[in-house]
Design a protein around this nucleic acid. Structure first.
Lengths: 155, 155
DNA sequence: CACGTTATCGCAAAGGCTTGCAATTACCGG
DNA sequence: CCGGTAATTGCAAGCCTTTGCGATAACGTG
């Protein structure tokens, strides 16, 4: 659904280093997961990722995938946002973060660039000392096209 | 966790009318659910609601509760937002909508009033024709206190 | 290169939520 | 107040995700 920009190559050597520094290990499972994540344009849900990994290595286990996603996220290599239904959607951490705009009627989504978000982020920082996590931001509502017509939930 | 304002009384007669107009029915199960929802300060997750309803009527069934929540939301009597983990949190539709701010470190949350959100909502409307759904808005990041210290995920 | 420590894996079970389907019952009309 | 139609309910089964636990295997050391 979301088709974002490039496909940044993740230097596995660096990843391994990243993990090692945190006392973590570099395993074939983690490598596969990261590889698939990296190959994927846009975002993936946990179950999608499990499926994709399985198509490469049928032995892939859900628990390992989900746990690995957390580990990679803790280390800062991966990020997640939430889809329209609240499910987590993962992606390799991009150079410049962005949030998402979801139309609750047609289900389409758009990216919110950091420039566009600057004003609101600044406002929360200024008035609350709150540091907004842009890549985690999901704004739901109705897009221009759907805003005119009535109706609710498509999904 | 969230303890919002008043406990608005829902006039059941009106609700019944609301439903009837949409060709829907007023059943004891729906009444119980709405009653519990109305009695609850702040937001509830689906499973919380099931539990609360069960403490009143042990015969309460999850599927009915979840389905009823959707129906009530479609009719406009109930709304939901997303917690830190993405789970839906329901509440009787308040007179004035508000969004939420969640600190991903300490887990605390605050309300974003419509006045405070006006600028950002206006910006999306102006620049994208996008109509933001404030009561569905969940902004995640780090609160003032937690922003200084490092660390990730508390939960 | 073998060994020990301990992070990680795979499994199984459980919790949260959704969905198909047959039985029930709210509601309208007579 | 009775009967018929269609919305709802309850159940069972299923998907998604998390978690405890024993077995496995990275990785650093000797």
């Amino acid at each position: 659904m979301i088709v974002s920009g490039s496909t940044p190559d993740v230097p596995f050597a660096d990843v391994r280093e990243h993990l090692r520094r945190a006392g973590l290990r570099w395993t074939p499972q983690r490598r596969l997961i990261l590889e698939v994540l990296d190959t994927t344009a846009g975002h993936v849900t946990g179950s999608d990722l499990v499926e994709r990994c399985r198509s490469i290595d049928p032995a892939t286990t859900p628990s390992t995938v989900y746990r690995t996603l957390r580990v990679l996220e803790d280390v800062g290599l991966v990020r997640h946002a939430h889809g329209l239904d609240g499910r987590e959607e993962f992606h390799v951490r991009p150079a410049d973060e962005h949030g998402h705009l979801h139309c609750e009627v047609c289900g389409e989504s758009w990216e919110i660039g950091s420039a566009e978000a600057a004003a609101m982020i600044g406002a929360f920082r200024r008035e609350r000392g709150f540091e907004v996590d842009l890549s985690h931001l999901t704004v739901v509502g109705r897009c221009e096209r759907c805003a005119s017509a009535p109706g609710r939930r498509t999904k």
